[in-house]
């Protein structure tokens, strides 16, 4: 059989399910976002059309919500990178049991689940943005760490010794060789942290209180507490758009070591 056809058959079940579950999400969010809210039962008024939810989202309180979400996501991404870089950097040379122990430790927050850290942070810290930020950094850190570790282990670090042997100072080696070599991995880890930071829900919803509401937690609030499903859908649409933009962004070519 044609190899291309074999590949299509083998990937069809997984791709089919991805399409079957992701496409309706986008279609339903878009459809709901332009409808008026239902009075009584149902999610929306059938046959209605309005732009009021997007207008609301891009004016006054909506803009403040968007700005807070963006700022929170940037802070989460920065926190994740600040923690991940020093944790992962020494592991680039590790082998065997040490590497496995390190990787398992990095994955521990994800494998242990979000419930336990959320309970601990809710108990120990006062309600506020700081607690929510800590929770999100903790929950996103394992993925960013694995991405960065994967990149760093693929780089030939003997060039650092060579540069030192040729007389470069430690700071020069770090700035002019190590950092450019690590940048693509740092970019990917940051992109991942920013994308998931934008969709941050558990931390802000459980630990931040009303003052620290992000787009994702407001979406849940509008849908379940206020039954304003179309407004929640508009927020969901904007959230998907923002996350999509983050994941589609590419670093400048010179960061990847390519000619401009």
């Amino acid at each position: 059989m044609n190899p291309g056809r074999v590949k299509a058959w083998l990937t069809a079940p997984a791709l089919g399910l991805v399409v079957a579950l992701v496409l309706p999400t986008v279609v339903v969010l878009l459809r709901l976002a332009f409808c008026r809210p239902a009075h009584g039962t149902g999610f929306y008024q059938p046959g209605s059309f309005t732009l009021e939810h997007f207008q609301r989202l891009f004016s006054g309180d909506g803009v403040a919500l968007l700005a807070f979400t963006l700022g929170f996501a940037l802070a989460v991404a920065a926190g994740v990178l600040l923690l991940v870089c020093p944790l992962v950097w020494p592991m680039r040379h590790w082998q065997g049991g040490w590497l496995l122990a390190g990787a398992l430790l990095l994955l521990a927050p994800r494998l242990a689940g979000p419930l336990a850290p959320l309970v601990a942070l809710k108990r120990v810290l006062p309600q506020g943005v700081l607690a929510a930020w800590l929770a999100e950094v903790y929950l996103i850190l394992p993925y960013a760490a694995l991405v960065l570790l994967g990149h760093l282990r693929g780089v030939d670090w003997t060039v650092l010794e060579t540069a030192r042997g040729l007389g470069a100072r430690r700071s020069q080696v770090l700035r002019r060789i190590a950092l450019p070599l690590a940048l693509p991995g740092i970019w990917l880890a940051g992109q991942l942290a920013l994308g998931w930071g934008l969709g941050a829900f558990l931390g802000p919803e459980l630990l931040a209180g009303p003052a620290g509401r992000t787009l994702a937690s407001d979406l849940h609030h509008q849908a379940f507490d206020n039954s304003r499903w179309p407004l929640a859908a508009a927020e969901g649409t904007v959230l998907l758009l923002l996350v999509g933009l983050v994941f589609l962004a590419r670093p400048p070519r010179r960061w990847l070591g390519e000619a401009p």
Partner: peptide, 30 residues
């Protein structure tokens, strides 16, 4: 593994990139 593809892997990891809240909200009416 037989023939790497530029778009199949990103398509397969796409659900992991979606914010679960938006995904859940979109699926709920369905």
């Amino acid at each position: 593994a037989r023939s790497p593809s530029r778009w199949i892997l990103p398509a397969l990891v796409l659900p992991g990139c979606l914010p679960p809240v938006a995904w859940g909200l979109g699926l709920m009416p369905v």
